[in-house]
Amino acid sequence: MTAPWLPDEAPQIYAITHNRDVVSIRQTIRVLAQRCRLSLVDQTKMITAASELARNTLVYGGGGAVKAGLVEKDGRRGIAALFEDSGPGIADVNLAMTDGWTSGSGLGLGLSGARRLVDEFDLVTEVGVGTTVTVIKWAR
């Protein structure tokens, strides 16, 4: 999935290499979500999804980056975030997307929960190469 970024505003890239980056990504996503006028509930869902994905990038991907910004399609605005790492990748995507499955000590809700919280979800991964997760939430 390629996100339809706004033509007049390039998305920004933020590093995810430290715990505190997860906190600042939540703040960045909040600002963007307010700018494209997501409802309060939709803002909360998008920030929560971003928080889950940023933590996965850090913990399992060994760090990476997120590219975030506003998108537009068919006259609708939204917010997109693309999380990218060059970590180990995910061998079994179906398993990883299962509620409650974790290879670590989490609850196994990050990926599957994030997918439920957003409008569009796309995961591309290759073992030994890395993982990219793109999410979009549209304003209603």
Partner: peptide
């Protein structure tokens, strides 16, 4: 707990 947080937590699966 804010209402939006409660809604989100349930959808997250928690």
């Amino acid at each position: 707990m804010r209402p939006a947080v409660a809604i989100t937590l349930v959808e997250l699966g928690l």
